[in-house]
Design a protein around this nucleic acid. Structure first.
Lengths: 204, 204
DNA sequence: GTGTACCGGTACTCCACCGTATCGGTACAC
DNA sequence: GTGTACCGATACGGTGGAGTACCGGTACAC
């Protein structure tokens, strides 16, 4: 009953059948992701999402055939890379910035990873969506940062610590809440990079 | 097995005259833990456990009032420390051995942590059981290893990398399956310790 | 032999959710 | 105005698991 005039003219004349605007669709996805993060995969129910977004179950099932497909679509909508535009010219500073950026979104992507941990094992489509939405883009961006550092000669190619850098960052992000009960914020991750990652790579 | 010291039905007021032997009880717990690891918390059903252990639901509900309490009891039965008896006299060797030991049980405790990730947020008893069964004993043992190294003067007290060692080990254990799709086995973890942890601590 | 207390089995109620079907209302096309 | 296609609401069938209730069987104490 509110945003009915937010519509795209160029899609009207064609065969656009759904009256769900992209903005409305994003509301559905946001509700799914919020619920995933706060209560886990099994707590995401079509009825719950329908109620919290004030639409009907029918509407959801018209757009997505099953719950896993719905959740997968929500994940894909979340695809965004945090580390892509980091390039300070110095590997140490790049890694500090990456750590800070990872700490920014704390409890968001990490929570999704946690929530989907086991659901992923039963639905391949979900697994695929999770990987391409959350895991691979971040890993690729981090590897690019490292490759630039190697190309500049800051670290010798094939340095044994190189391969562990992405897993270390994500691991700390993931494990601090479990071990210490505190979120791994930007300051914590930057300290970690300076105390462990840089020394292991032979950087100041 | 080996639970007589920590478990005595006749001394606990709750257990009346149960005919469930400790060995039989452990069968229940093992079934719960297996199911947890392979399919997640929600996949653990009282009916399923009863069927797979060829007992009746009634029997389970006579011993444990609810499913979360049952799972918590299973977790507590799993309490055992892997790092306690590591003491080679050298911090580097201790850490190598700890890494190897952590890799041994790969996919066991790690799987449990993963499976209970979100269920824990709704049941405080479960959360408590998880922490005291899996998290805190291992952390304490690792900290003891590090403290001995500091006491021997191998690493200066207050070295900034010290506080991250436990989280690093668990983080790698947990993240490699996600990032690379492979289990973090003992060889992988030992390589990690030698490539990252020891250099960060200033050890050879 | 008798009593007791537990075990296994099963049937049951309750409830939540998935996914489908139906219906009235309404925005837009023509 | 008329038609069409979608939306929201709601009701429904089906499934599956949490707990409960009840039963017959049986091991053990005395």
């Amino acid at each position: 009953m509110t945003s009915q005039d937010a519509y795209r003219p160029e899609t009207v004349g064609t065969s656009r059948r759904s009256k769900i605007t992209p903005e409305r669709e994003q509301e559905f996805f946001d509700a799914v992701l919020d619920q995933l993060r706060s209560c886990g995969y099994d707590a995401v129910t079509m009825e719950g999402i329908a109620a919290s977004t004030r639409c009907s179950k029918s509407t959801l099932y018209r757009q997505w055939k099953t719950k896993p497909q719905f959740v997968a679509a929500a994940l894909r909508s979340n695809r965004r890379v945090r580390f892509t535009d980091i390039d300070t010219g110095s590997l140490a500073d790049d890694l500090r910035q990456a750590a800070a950026a990872a700490g920014e979104g704390t409890g968001k992507d990490t929570g999704l990873l946690q929530a989907l941990g086991h659901a992923v094992m039963e639905d391949p489509e979900l697994k695929c969506a999770l990987r391409e939405a959350l895991v691979e883009p971040e890993i690729a961006a981090l590897r690019a940062i490292l490759a630039r550092g190697v190309a500049r000669g800051e670290v010798p190619a094939g340095h044994p610590a190189l391969e562990y850098v992405p897993a270390q960052l994500f691991g700390m992000l993931r494990m601090r809440p479990v071990l210490e009960g505190k979120q791994a914020d930007a300051a914590y991750l930057v300290r970690f990079v300076e105390a462990v990652v840089l020394p292991a790579l032979g950087l100041p």
